[in-house]
Amino acid sequence: MSGKEPGQFTFSEIYAQAHTASQTLARSCERSRMLASLGPLSQFDQILFTGCGSSYNLGRCAVWAWSSLLNKRVCALPAAELAHFPENYLSGQGKPLLFAISRTGGTAETVLAVETLHERFNAATVALTTEADRELPQVCHLSIDFSECKEQSLVMTQAFTCMLYSLYLLADSFSGAAWASQLANIPSAIGESLMRNEPVVRALGEDLSLSRFIFLGSGPFRGLAMEAALKMTEMAYETAQTYYTLEFRHGPKAALGPESIVIIYPVEAERRYLKVLIDEIAQTGARSLVIADRPVDVDCEQLNFNSGLGDLFLPALFAHIGQQLAFWRACARGVDPDAPRYLVHTVKLDGS
């Protein structure tokens, strides 16, 4: 017997994020120099992010800052999709840059995507991983090591936050560093939120009258909503669904009831429509929780941060909320979030 308490690793990794993110910030200049070694980003006609599961969701979040700040074509794709159907997403007319994300560095589909783009599109490839001695760094042109957020738990938490934060810092660095001072405040803002919002998030997670969790997010928050739903599924084995925010009104709301909670990450462009959405949710007997940087004029529970960051960067600040919620839900259900059933650290295509 190891004597380890259930959830010990996941708890420490979630609640250490302010510290690990500060280490990520300290390594940002070093990582900018590493990426610059590939040459100017202007040589690449397209930038792609790929990964599986949480790593793919991370890419979905990063895309918005990279496309907006660098004014380039940027997309995120699941690694298997990119490996098997690359011609549907790449023009073949120029040289693409691929960021391949894998916490463990050995995800089979991600390695396959890199090899496919090398062979068929002459892509430049960058591995983002916490384990620099695995397969993915070996097949990429450049490897950026995130040893500061290496995890023992099966479920990705602090590594998601730190890798995403680093990608924001890189995008800002290569576009003039206009957001540098605001981005530097993210670690301390995470630390404050982990403590301040703990009572609300824990109470929701421990409320066993809730049995359906829906996460809504559009634009820069789409990947974040997907990630929050995945955390709830992985850690707590709960029914968790995710939709684009306003798309939820077109059919999915029919499944709501008193056992449901709808968690909304509102993008600035859709704030004007939140009242009607939340009123419709309330009519079903379901609850709503809004997670936003500044308060929204709606009648429901809210978590606000007042960081002054724009929508492009807020997913790195908000990610821990979904992680906390899933952790406390798992504990309330008697599930060990460190070791979810059927899951393994590294997924292989041969099933090993």
Rank of each mutant, 00 (worst) to 15 (best):
P6F: 01
G7K: 04
F11C: 00
F11Q: 04
E13D: 11
A16M: 05
A18D: 10
L25D: 09
S32A: 15
R33M: 15
S42C: 11
I47H: 00
N57V: 01
L58V: 00
R60I: 04
A62C: 00
K72T: 11
R73L: 04
V74A: 00
C75E: 12
A79V: 07
S91F: 02
S91M: 07
S91W: 06
G106F: 04
T110L: 06
A113H: 01
A113K: 00
A113L: 05
H118W: 15
N122A: 13
A123V: 02
L128S: 03
C140M: 09
K150D: 10
L154P: 06
Y168H: 12
D172K: 07
W179V: 07
I186K: 02
I190W: 01
E192M: 14
L194M: 03
P199N: 06
G205M: 05
S211N: 15
L216D: 05
G219F: 00
F221R: 12
A228I: 10
A229T: 04
M235R: 04
T245L: 13
H250Q: 04
G251T: 02
A254H: 03
L256M: 05
E268R: 15
E270T: 05
Y273W: 12
L274E: 10
D279M: 09
R287K: 11
V290G: 05
L303I: 15
N306C: 14
G308Q: 12
G322R: 06
Q323R: 02
P340Y: 10
R341N: 13
Y342N: 15
L343I: 14
V347A: 04
K348N: 09
